[in-house]
Amino acid sequence: MLWKRIGLKDFEFPKVHDYKKDYIKIEGKFPKEVKINRISESENKYFDIEFSGVGDKFTSFAKKYYNAGIQLRLPRNTKIVEPVKLEFHMDENNPTLVDKNLIIAEEGSEVNIIMDYYSNEKIETLHNGLTVIYAKENATVNIIKIQRLGDSSQSFDSNIAYVEGNGKVNWISVELGSYISGSNYRTYLDGEASGSNLSSIYLGDGIRKMDLEYTMIHKGPRSISNIETKGVLKDNSKKVFRGNLDFKRGSRHSKGVEEEYVILLDPTVKSDSIPALLCDEDDVEGEHAASAGQIDENKLFYLMSRGLDERESKKLVVEASFRPIIDRIPYKYLQEIIFDEIERRLIDA
C-alpha cells in the first residue's frame, strides 16, 4: 500500500457538491478549432486506462464523481502560445474539488497549460484530481501544476501522459501546501524519440506529509526522460520520494536521468527516498542520483557576515536551490506567486 510510509491508512471521501466557481481563464485569442470545454461523459473512453495514480480508490473516485475539469483538444499542427489557465481557488462554499482533465494534442500541435490550486489557510478543503494527456506524433504539451492549498487541506493528484513518436510532455510540479499531499506523475514514452521532462520542487513545513511518485516508462527506442527534483524540509514535515525509471524491452538507445536533492533544515524532519531503476533492455543508459544534507555552513556564514540574519540567509540558500526549476516557468507572475509563498512559509510562519 502506497500510503503506509506517511501513515494514511484509511480515507473516506466527503459528499461531493457542485464546484460553482469559474476556473477556465483564457487571456489570448485561440483559433476556433481549439476546443476547450468542461469535462463531460462523452470523453469517458479516454479514461478507460490502467492507472492507479496515488491509489485506485482516488483515481476511480475522480473518474466517477468529478465536479470540475476540462477537455481540451488541439487539432493537427495548431500551436497556441498563450497558456490555457485553470485556476482552482477553493473556498468555504467550494471546499471539495474533484477535477478530471483530458488533453489531446493531435499531431504536430503545441500547448501550454497552467493548473493552479489554492485556498485560504483556515479552510478545510479536499482536492482529488486526475489528468490524462495524449501527445500524438510531434506534439508538445507543457504543463505546470502548482499546489499551494492551505495547511488545513488535503491534496491528491494523479497525472498520466502517453507520448507518441517525437512527441514531448514537459511537467513542472510545484508542491507547497496541504497537510497531506499525494502526487503521482506517470509518463509512457511509447513512440520513437519521444521525450519527457519532469521538474519539480517541494517544500515541507509544519506537519506536512508528502508522498511524491514520478515514473517514466520507456517503450519507444531513442526515448529520453529527465526527472529533476529539489526539495526542502523543515519543522516536523515528512516526505517520501519515489522516482522510477523503467526501460521496457525494445527501448534501445534510450536515456533516462533522475535526480533528487533535498535540503534538511530541522532535526525533526523525515525524508525517505526510493529511487528505482528497472531495466529489461541492455542498450540503454539510466542514471539516478539522490543526495541529502543540511545547508552548506560556509554559504550561510558568508551571507550572515554580510549582515543578513539567519532566517533570511537560509531563505536565500533555499531559493537558490529552487531557482533553476522555477526559472523554467516562463511566466513572471507565476514565479512571483511561488517565491512569495516560499517566503511566507520560510520567514513569516
Binding site: L264, K270, A289, S291
Partner: peptide, 15 residues
C-alpha cells in the same frame, strides 16, 4: 532519513 545533520549521497547507473 530521520534527522537533518547528515550528508548522504546516492547514485546508480545502468548501461
Amino acid at each position: 532519513l530521520n534527522n537533518d545533520n547528515i550528508d548522504i549521497g546516492h547514485e546508480a547507473k545502468i548501461g
